[in-house]
């Protein structure tokens, strides 16, 4: 049963590959993030296919989706929804905001004010919205793909570290490879391709898959490895601060999902290594004397410092 489900998810991934060309790795990481029940942050330039990825994910998994383009004049209510006085009924009627969906694409989240950002992040964290003293549950698979543009700094509000921690993964898509781009150019408009994507899975199946993922076995040796990696980010040279316990849990959860996605009954260190950069990259920072080291560089440093096969 689990196998067939994993197969189905793999089919979904292959479907996505048809739309997001040459980004198999990123597609699988996004799916892993979805399977782990966390939210995804994509840091990239505009026009790299973030929106396409979000829409394609939604249609393949049969999720309802909506998109918010963040601007600097946006208010929390613009996202969460407002209560409007309805004259005929003589009562306030709640008009749900775009957040009430299963897959939310929050575009350019760093363009809006911290107040609005935190409204969304709280909704993400708690899975519910509290407005005018009333708490409303968000739909069950609730998955946020937020994007932020790393280059434009003027008039933006970069997410603070504490908020970054709420995203399970951070990835960037990057430019397509030359041949992928050629294919893209030849095929023309991507929107038409996306509309033809059939739903391979249902939200129920997704929930089932999410549960199956967390059943994947993680041996004590593997947990040791995860622990040593996390420990190194806290004690090793070159880190100004390390991964929080929440980050450590996230790492293991993602490694499990990755293993499940690749039809393994147990997690192997390779799974941890594959998801390490997306899960940990935005939770660590280089020490002052290592300034300028990108998180990718730090993570590769981390990998080379912690021996996989060290016993104990």
């Amino acid at each position: 049963m689990a196998d067939t489900l994993a197969k189905q998810v793999q089919q979904a991934c292959e479907q996505l590959d048809q739309v997001i060309l040459g980004k198999a790795q990123q597609v699988r990481l996004a799916v892993t993030c979805l399977l782990s029940g966390g939210h995804l942050l994509i840091e990239d330039l505009p026009g790299m296919g973030k929106t396409t990825l979000a829409h394609a994910l939604a249609s393949v998994f049969g999720l309802a989706d909506s998109r918010i383009q963040f601007t600097s004049d946006m208010l929390p209510a613009d996202i969460l929804g407002v209560s409007v006085f309805d004259a005929p009924s003589g009562a306030f009627v709640f008009h749900p905001g775009p957040v009430f969906t299963q897959l939310l694409l929050a575009d350019e989240i760093n363009r809006t004010t911290p107040k609005t950002q935190s409204a969304l992040l709280e909704a993400m964290e708690e899975g519910q919205v509290t407005q005018d003293g009333e708490t409303r549950q968000l739909p069950d698979p609730f998955f946020v793909i937020a994007t932020q543009n790393p280059l434009t700094q003027f008039g933006t509000f970069p997410l603070p570290e504490s908020q970054l921690d709420r995203f399970l993964m951070r990835i960037n898509l990057g430019y397509p490879s030359p041949e992928a781009e050629r294919t893209l150019l030849m095929r023309g408009d991507t929107l038409s391709r996306r509309q033809r994507l059939p739903a391979v899975l249902s939200p129920e199946k997704l929930r089932e898959a999410q549960q199956a993922c967390q059943q994947v076995h993680a041996s004590s040796d593997l947990i040791h490895y995860v622990q040593r990696l996390v420990q190194y980010t806290r004690e090793g040279d070159g880190f100004s601060y390390g991964v929080s316990p929440r980050g450590a849990l996230a790492l293991l959860r993602c490694a499990r999902s990755w293993a499940w996605l690749h039809e393994r009954q147990h997690v192997v260190p390779e799974d941890v290594q594959r998801v390490l950069e997306p899960v940990v990259g935005h939770r660590i920072r280089a020490a002052e004397d290592m300034a300028g080291h990108t998180s990718a560089r730090l993570v590769s440093e981390l990998l080379s410092r912690v021996d996989v096969m060290a016993s104990g």
Partner: peptide, 20 residues
């Protein structure tokens, strides 16, 4: 292209915290 150093006035926008 929006540039801070340019001097061609383009339009007015509602002020938001965070703007210069």
């Amino acid at each position: 292209v929006v540039q801070s150093g340019s001097d061609d006035f383009s339009d007015l926008k509602r002020f938001q915290p965070g703007m210069s």
